[in-house]
Amino acid sequence: MASHSTSSTTVPRKRSKTQSEVAVNPSFDNLPSSLLEVIMSRLVLKDNIRASASCKTWREAAVSVRVVEKHPWLFCFPKRGTSFELIDPLHWKTHTLNLPELADSTLCYSRDGWLLMRRSVSKDMFFFNPFSRERVSLPKFEQSFLVIAFSCPPTSDHCVVGLVSSLRFYVENQERRITISTCHPGATEWITQESVFHSVFLWHDKHHSKLFYLHNRFYFFHCFNQGGGSLHSFHTSSRTWDSHYAYVSSEHQLSFYQKASFLAEKNGELFLMLTSGNEKPLIYKLVSSNWVKMSLTELDGLTFFVSFYNSELRNNLPWMRNNVYFSRFGYNRKSCVSYSLDESTYSPCKEWHSWQQLCPPQSIWIVPP
């Protein structure tokens, strides 16, 4: 019997390309890993993630150069005592910090991992880092104030603190006056000045004015009683106000006391978010002294974290993109209340009648170490 030949059933092995063949017919599969990493490092996070799904080699290169920003955590003040909660809004991990240094103190502002505090009785003001327990004193400020902010950590030589203590309107001459005070760590007193405005854009806005520092200026935003708002800026070196007003017309139809504005910066650009209870948050970017409303495509994954006192902005958070996170706990304390810009819905779904429900004054966003 003739033997059965196996030549028709044998599967030949795939032959590897020689170096000469690769040189004649190059492909993306043959790119060296160092070059792939350079290419991946130039992609924005969204495109980096898409490219990583192509193959194992691309995934390894994309992950090796992927930069994911740190998201802020929620710092919660107790109703009594000195046990403070620090909560991760992504994994909802809770840490307890015992901070007797903050007894009899009220919160004013937070930025770059530092808290700006004020003693309730003595009116002493100071910076405090809840992680390192470091404290930096400021001159006492006896009066009440409307809003306050600082530029950078108090350990920097460039740190400056600014506060607006009063807004006055004089009916007889349609004159509006604003009082601003500034100081820096190590100073012995505040420098205060009152400036006069004749513009109708300046409005007494005690609860919804926001102050934010960027590019040697304190930006001051006002919501209007009839909707919308305007932006003013105070130059810290020349101590002059910018007379050009960046006006934004709000689509919200709720009353003055139900609106809130939040200023934040990203890569040197100033952003504004307006919200009012259960309405859709509106987001704008300052472009050439004008507020430009941003579409969902233009946002490109931005994430807002807002509270009664401050706001933080990120754009490299893969699992939290296109969301607004408020400082209010959700049901059963398992998550923060958030708004999905992709789905145009709040989570949990509930009627929020005012922005203060979403941003209670007992919590603030802080950058963890």
Rank of each mutant, 00 (worst) to 15 (best):
L202I: 12
C223L: 06
R239S: 10
A103Q: 11
L115T: 07
G277M: 07
L358R: 08
N267G: 09
N98P: 00
K46V: 02
Q226P: 00
L167V: 13
L317A: 08
G330A: 06
E269P: 00
S27A: 08
E265L: 01
E279C: 12
F145I: 07
H353N: 12
F141T: 04
R66F: 05
H71T: 07
L138G: 03
T192E: 13
V121N: 09
W319V: 10
M320V: 10
I39C: 06
K266G: 00
A23P: 00
A53Q: 15
L254S: 13
L138Y: 03
I364M: 12
C152A: 09
A51P: 01
K259H: 03
T188Y: 05
F218Y: 07
D157N: 11
S3F: 05
N332V: 06
Y109D: 05
E175P: 04
K259V: 07
S137A: 11
N290V: 12
L313K: 00
G229L: 02
P89E: 07
Q356R: 10
E21W: 00
S195P: 02
T297S: 05
H184M: 14
R177N: 14
F150D: 02
C152V: 12
P72G: 04
H95C: 07
G186A: 09
M320I: 00
H252K: 08
V121L: 08
V171H: 13
H198T: 14
S181N: 06
L138F: 03
Q253E: 10
L146I: 13
A149E: 11
L317H: 06
T188P: 00
I87Q: 02
T9R: 14
T297E: 03
P361C: 11
M1A: 14
L272A: 01
Y331Q: 14
S20G: 05
S237A: 10
H71W: 10
W203R: 11
L35V: 14
D104T: 08
F126I: 07
Q143M: 06
F197C: 15
N98D: 14
S335H: 15
D88S: 10
P26W: 04
